[in-house]
Simulated scan of single mutants.
Amino acid sequence: MRHLKTTVHPDIEHLDDKTVFQRKAARAIVVEGENILLLYTERYHDYTIPGGGLDEGEDVIAGMVRELQEETGARNIHSIKPFGIYEEFRPWYKDDADVMHMTSYCYSCKIDAQLGETAYEDYEVKNGMKPVWVNIHDAIAHNEKTIAESPKKGMSIERETYLLHLIAKEML
């Protein structure tokens, strides 16, 4: 799979003598015309691509399918194709490591138009997460406004907005 980008949090000057926690994630790109299936999160006021961390030993595509079903209620997921890998190095604030290296495996796919039931985790419910079909250009503009105005923004919204720009350029 092609490498899209690697980002390093500004607080990480080097990895020498650092303990690095490896996290793998899978993300699902579902486009229909100029609309894209995204997750809107009320707490962060942003749009994100469905996906998340893989369970220990979980196949990447199986994890992408699981995350897409849980977060959006997507059904009949098919025509799965590799899109690219996005890497991030971020500070890790737990005792087992200093830095998290997250590798996101992104795939495009198709689904049935009608969404089923979601299966959110508690924190996703508390954050006000919900699946929405939105015009990709509107989502990009929204995220860029949030990046410019929100003190809560982090590396995630920057990743998502970068990916949305690339998807708009290559898939529309």
Rank of each mutant, 00 (worst) to 15 (best):
K169Y: 13
I157T: 04
G154N: 12
D46K: 09
G84D: 10
R90L: 08
Q69C: 07
A62D: 10
N127P: 03
D98R: 05
A26Y: 00
G128F: 06
R43H: 06
I136H: 03
I77G: 00
G52D: 00
I85L: 14
E56W: 07
L164M: 13
I12K: 01
V65P: 00
Y47V: 02
K130F: 13
A74T: 01
H142F: 05
L37T: 01
Y105P: 00
L115I: 14
G63M: 00
R90W: 12
K169A: 11
G52A: 13
E58A: 03
H9C: 14
G33C: 06
D95G: 14
G116I: 06
I157M: 07
R27I: 03
I36R: 01
G63D: 01
R66S: 08
A148V: 07
G154R: 09
R90I: 07
N76L: 05
H9Y: 11
L115W: 07
D11K: 09
E71V: 00
K145M: 13
T41G: 07
V65W: 00
H101A: 11
D59A: 12
D59K: 14
R66V: 10
K145I: 11
D96A: 07
R2H: 14
E13F: 08
I77D: 01
K126S: 15
D59Q: 11
Q114R: 15
G116M: 08
M171T: 07
K94Q: 10
P50V: 03
H45P: 09
M129I: 06
G63I: 03
P151H: 13
L166V: 14
G128S: 13
L166H: 09
A148H: 08
G154Q: 10
S156P: 08
M100Q: 09
H45S: 09
H3N: 13
S150H: 05
Q22E: 14
D16Q: 07
